[in-house]
Structures are given as C-alpha cells and as structure tokens.
C-alpha cells in the first residue's frame, strides 16, 4: 500500500530532515485493516532516526503532536483505530509556541 507521510513543525528533524516520505507499507500478518496503530509502529521502526521519545509516548504520539489523515484531525476518524487506505496522506505536525 502506497502512502505519503509528511512531518512538520520540527518533527522532520527526527527523520533526516526530510519532510515528505513516499512509502510502501504491508498489511501486518493476521490484520484485516491497516490502522494508524500499525502505521505509528512502522514509522517508529523505519523512519525515526533519533530521539523517538520526541515522536511517541506509549503506543501513541507524544503530547503536542497533531496527526492529520487526508487533512483531517485523526480525532475525527478514530485516532489509533483510523483505517488507512491506498494513497492516503498522513501528516504529523508538532505544535509551535514561538512568536
């Protein structure tokens, strides 16, 4: 399954300063759907190169990170249970405080 993953607000620094990643992911054995839970674990293993605690806390993203599935807050689609489909765009963005 082909997906576009984007990192912003400084999270790109955790994955070689690349903001956009076009990736191919496979459905884990025994799973019916590919969910955000699967994707987070895939991202942590395959894309995050340093300080994983700046991306995740427990099995979800750390406080202060917004997750957008096709430009929509993942709170509206079921967070970790959101089903991901072919060609979806998932954005991880760290909230900014500066001014």
């Amino acid at each position: 399954m082909q997906l576009t993953l984007e990192f912003g607000g400084g999270l790109e620094l955790l994955c070689d300063s690349e903001k956009i990643h076009k990736v191919n992911v496979d459905l884990p054995n025994g799973a019916d759907d590919f969910t955000m839970k699967h994707l987070l674990s895939w991202v942590r293993t395959n894309l995050i190169k340093e300080r994983p605690e700046m991306f995740m806390k427990g099995d979800t993203v750390r406080p202060g990170v917004l997750v957008l599935v096709n430009d929509c807050d993942w709170e509206l689609s079921g967070q970790l249970d959101t089903t991901i489909e072919e060609k979806d765009v998932i954005v991880f963005i760290s909230t900014l405080h500066g001014g």
């Binding site: 700046m54 750390r62 406080p63 202060g64 909230t95 001014g99």
Partner: peptide, 25 residues
C-alpha cells in the same frame, strides 16, 4: 481541547534558541 497535555519541554523551542526567519511570524 486540542492539547490537553502540555508537550515535553524539549519540544518547546524558543526563537532565541532555534532561530526564525523574520517574515515567517
């Protein structure tokens, strides 16, 4: 509602530490 838990302090950069291009703000 959006950020019920504050982020870790290491994720809170200041312009005086991380820099900012003037026109962005």
């Amino acid at each position: 509602c959006l950020f019920p838990t504050p982020p870790p302090t290491t994720a809170c950069q200041r312009c005086s530490d991380s820099g900012v291009l003037g026109v962005v703000p």
